[in-house]
Amino acid sequence: MAILELQSLKKSYGEHLAVDGLSFSIDAGEVFGLLGPNGAGKSTTINIIATLVTPDSGSVRVAGIPFENEDAFKRKLGYVPQEVSLAERMTARENLRLVGKLYDLSGGDLRRRVDATLDLVGLLDRGGDLVETFSGGMKRRLNIAAALLHDPILLLLDEPTAGVDPHARVYIFEMVERLASEGRAVLYTTHYMEEAERLCRRTAIIDHGRILAMGTLGELIRRVEAKRDMVIEGRGLTEETVRKLAEGMGRIPWMLNEGAAHLSVAGDQRAILRAAELASETGIEPTSIRLVEPNLEMVFLELTGRALRD
């Protein structure tokens, strides 16, 4: 059963088309990934679903409720902004109580939900502490808790692990998986491919406001199964030399990531020899050249022609 349904969504700011006819749906219990570089239209899409921005055209429904029915629509969704949006000088419990009151919760019901939510995010024993005493990871968990208090059926998570340490990140992953297993639909945006690969049943790759590809990880990778990610490490790897190399190999997609060059090549060992030949001509001194099985990062590179973090 579809919890979130987007149909032909369009939004422009002046001449700039931020969202261009977006359509997708998310089922109950599904974590859906929205991948795209900065400026691709992810935030605008999330903002439209969260009712922060009004689309020029198209429709959004949550559990069958159109967003025009704003009050009922909002009560179905929980929105977790990218930044920690809590009052530092209030306790965790006070923060949640405040949010609960905005959703018309009160009395014993509010108390129970606050405790249950604090328990869900592993902060029940720290409920009486001021948020300013929390670590970054704890604040992130509380940030998510604030969106869960009113028991929404759709959860919008906008890069919830940005700036979080690995331990806290794993905790957040487990929490998201648990929430989905309870039947909630989760829309998850991230810059990290490994997060999308681990969490998302389906992923949409978005750029210039349009969906370039959508499907399960397997379906997406099949789009590039004839391709491999050629990883070149060595000296002389600059934007200019790698671009020359990519042009020499037939204008193939490329990117520089953490000191290594990634080129999307047809899966053949001969490509390695060709790259080694051309490398010396372009001023690159490779120490290793290897072919890697296709992954989401490569799908993204192939579709957009740039790295996700560009």
């Binding site: 969260a50 902004p81 949006s85 959703y103």
Partner: peptide, 14 residues
């Protein structure tokens, strides 16, 4: 506006 609190509030029924 700067901390995301505004967006969280606006996403609530108010």
């Amino acid at each position: 506006l700067g901390t995301g609190e505004m967006r969280r509030l606006l996403a609530a029924p108010l």
